[in-house]
């Protein structure tokens, strides 16, 4: 499962890439492959205030609707308009062209609540082990 080295991650499988006080947010490879073909991205409003780990927006696939949570608190400063025409961008390029929103971060200290790429990698492994255990029951 692809993980980008310098991004930070949440347990709900969002990533954030922080540069100069602004964080670009998207969902991970694991999230997009679990969701399947994405059919709709409800984009947040520019200027919306968001809290860490609170719903930022939602994504639909054919048979699911999932909330996307903001990795950091702040204000939405830009959204990826291309997703309204082509939600499949997330499936094809979840870490790059399929970004969802840019957030002006209000509290950098919150980043300590996020996982590094390495931590997220082991988190994914632990999920896989749990899944197997469930299957054995």
């Amino acid at each position: 499962m692809e993980i980008v080295e310098h991004y930070l991650y949440t347990k709900e499988h969002e990533w954030i890439n922080m540069e100069d006080g602004t964080g670009t947010v998207g969902i991970t490879e694991y999230a997009q492959s679990t969701l399947g073909d994405i059919t709709f991205v409800e984009l947040p409003n520019v200027d919306a205030e968001v809290e860490q780990f609170e719903p930022l927006t939602s994504i639909e696939s054919v048979k699911s609707a999932s909330d996307i949570f903001s990795p950091m608190s702040g204000r939405v400063v830009e959204i990826n308009d291309e997703l309204s025409e082509d939600p499949g961008l997330i499936n094809r390029s979840c870490y790059d062209k399929g970004w969802i929103a840019k957030v002006e971060i209000s509290d950098m200290d919150e980043s300590s609540n996020l996982m590094t790429a390495a931590e997220y990698g082991s988190y994914l492994e632990s999920l896989e082990r749990e899944g197997e255990a469930e299957g054995d029951e």
Binding site: T39, F40, E60, S61, V62, K63, S64, A65
Partner: peptide, 8 residues
């Protein structure tokens, strides 16, 4: 169908 009760 993602609008509907059996999913959401």
């Amino acid at each position: 169908q993602a609008r509907e009760q059996h999913i959401r």
